[in-house]
Design a protein around this nucleic acid. Structure first.
Length: 547
RNA sequence: GCGCCUGUAGCGCAAUGGAUAGCGCAUUAGCCUCCGGAGCUAGUGGUACAGGUUCGACUCCUGUCAGGCGCACCA
């Protein structure tokens, strides 16, 4: 039964609906199930009666009462019977299913058998998905904004892979163009200044200290630099790669814009669009008819000076994404790019792809606080908090978790002092503490990880069943993360799971005189350990045995 | 001016359209002869405002007010 309980239950409910003669008012897809609704309302709940109340012209609760009875009847001849202890119509018209303890014992057994793969699924059917994120211009160290995008993108890719997708992480490298040229000129100018030349440093150049450091290194090592843009771009790219590595983010592919241009793919894409009639010339520039696909205004792709706008290579890049076999494309961007979504979607549509297969996630900014006071940030003056600073101060585990603690589309306040605290105020420690505590008990029990009780049915206490129920919800939470394309729900779940464990621990002693019960409870906390480690692992956070 | 995000307890935040709006901090009262007290139990206190959609709205829509960010032939 296991994971298929959702499908099996829908079958039973559908049979009940038919039995009650209600199937003509809705279809099977209308049967929505909610897992672990409000306390006291069962383990699985369906709102189907409310949905069909109007067309059936009956009160929802009356329908629910009838359906509960018919569903019970349909259940009678089903293998599902032993897992359902009760079906009740409650509230405004919900139909609630109460799972029998045997269901939870089997679930627990499954976690212990399959370990960290217990919730793995083939839901994604190995569909190729590209998650492109960070993609910062190599013109300076990564900021906290990039850090948050990196954490979210990486975790999302992990979750999707766990659910059976072939999710690949990619970094689009803007290794040529205006910004890179400015970067090169910035270094060149600083070098000239170091050599005593009286040259002005323009305001739109990169102001950060790292520019001066680069110039100083060139001077000290007496390097012969021919192309300052290329030199500086590569120099910073290495810094970025190291920063991401230290943040535990690894990309499958670094896609170079320069290579894309050299390959002639941009012209190819333009040729395609031109043949379709989506390009036109005006005021000496080449325009893309994005309004035809819902954009506010048409966009320039080749400027009147003959150079490309940013959109030009991006159109070709996205054409390549689909040509490389990706069925679904996810882009993770900062909020400064939100106005860009409609034109890229237009481009994808013009290229003959369904724009729905392109998802753009806007990761809102993270404001860094110290002792409750915000730290002012200004990219212009080169004064912003970097990924490196946060990493050095609070570490990978805490920073990654903190960046995902809020809904990705919401602003995030990241307090450095809270992040360093080792109190319940800091959820990472709260979760890791639960894990370490379990590890400690297991060490004392002297049991190997593989030892499993064959009498899990001894687990009958409320707190024991509550804990298994919480573990059971893990797979459901991952589906929510997938649906919302946001890993943050997992951070909420892990806090709840840790809390449920702490409550169990406080009420019941694991290591006792009753050997069979000790074995069963040891198995329970071992399963808890597996779930916590798996969840933390998907988020890229470690699970320490000792703290 | 236009667009995006956000207004929930004194503070920081939860609640995939669902039932009794949860948690931490702060504050008040308890729990260690016992597996990690970095924990647990109980008390105080809340949906910015006005309409609308819905069987049902913190959630969706419209407007108002408040805060953050963005609006290039830049990337």
């Amino acid at each position: 039964m296991e994971n298929n309980i959702e499908l099996a239950l829908k079958d039973i409910i559908w049979a009940g609906l038919k039995e009650a003669g209600l199937d003509s008012f809705c279809c099977r897809e209308d049967i929505g199930l909610e897992f672990a609704p409000a306390p006291g309302f069962g383990d699985i709940s369906s709102n189907v009666c409310m949905r069909l109340a109007k067309s059936a012209k009956k009160a929802p609760i009356a329908i629910a009462n009838e359906l509960a009875q018919k569903t019970g009847k349909a259940l009678g001849s089903s293998p599902l019977k032993k897992y359902i202890s009760e079906i009740k119509a409650q509230g405004a018209g919900f139909i609630n299913f109460y799972l029998a303890p045997v269901y939870f014992w089997e679930e627990l057994q499954r976690i212990l058998d399959k370990k960290q793969d217990f919730a793995r699924s083939d839901l994604g059917k190995t569909e190729k998905v590209m998650i492109e994120f960070v993609s910062a211009n190599p013109t300076g160290p990564l900021s906290v904004a990039h850090a948050r995008q990196a954490a979210v993108g990486d975790a999302l890719a992990n979750i999707m892979c766990y659910l059976g997708f072939d999710a690949q992480k990619e970094y689009y490298l803007n290794d040529e163009g205006n910004q890179i040229n400015i970067l090169g000129n910035s270094v060149k100018t600083r070098l000239a200044q170091l050599n005593g030349e009286k040259v002005e440093f323009p305001e739109n150049y990169y102001q950060g200290d790292y520019i001066v450091e680069m110039a100083r290194e060139i001077k000290d090592k007496k390097l012969k630099v021919e192309d300052f843009s290329e030199y500086a771009g590569n120099y910073i790219l290495e810094i970025i790669k190291q920063e991401l590595k230290d943040f535990h983010v690894e990309f499958a592919c670094w896609f170079s814009q320069k290579e894309l241009r050299k390959s002639g793919k941009i012209e190819e894409a333009f040729k395609y669009l031109k043949e379709k009639g989506f390009l036109y010339e005006q005021d000496g520039a080449l325009w893309f008819k994005s309004t035809q696909f819902g954009d506010d205004k048409d966009r320039v792709v080749i400027k009147s000076d003959g150079s490309y706008t940013y959109l030009a290579p991006d159109i070709a890049y996205h054409r390549e994404k689909y040509r490389r076999g990706f069925k679904r494309v996810i882009n993770i961007w900062g909020p400064d790019h939100h106005g860009y979504i409609s034109r890229l979607k237009a481009a994808v549509a013009a290229l003959g792809q369904d724009p729905e297969t392109l998802s753009v996630l806007i990761v809102q900014l993270a404001s860094i606080f110290r002792e409750g006071k915000p730290i002012e940030m200004s990219t212009r003056r080169g004064q912003y908090i970097t990924l490196r600073e946060v990493l050095d101060e609070v570490g990978v585990d805490v920073s990654r978790f903190f960046f995902m603690m809020r809904r990705t589309s919401s602003h995030l306040n990241f307090d450095l002092e809270t992040a360093k605290k080792q109190t319940p105020e800091n959820p990472v420690y709260y979760i890791q503490y639960a894990y370490a505590r379990i590890s400690s008990i297991l060490r004392q029990a002297g049991l190997s990880e593989t030892a499993v009780s064959d009498e899990l049915s001894l687990l009958k206490e409320k707190e024991e069943i509550d804990l298994i129920r919480k573990l059971w919800q893990f797979a459901y939470i991952l589906k929510v993360c997938l649906k919302t394309l946001d890993p943050y729900m997992l951070t909420v779940y892990l806090q709840e799971a840790a809390e449920t464990f702490h409550k169990f621990y406080d009420c019941h002693r694991v290591l006792g005189t009753d050997q069979a019960l000790t074995a069963a409870r040891t198995s329970l906390i071992n399963a808890t350990r597996i779930v916590l480690a798996t969840g933390l692992g998907l988020l890229g956070v470690s699970a320490p045995e000792r703290m």
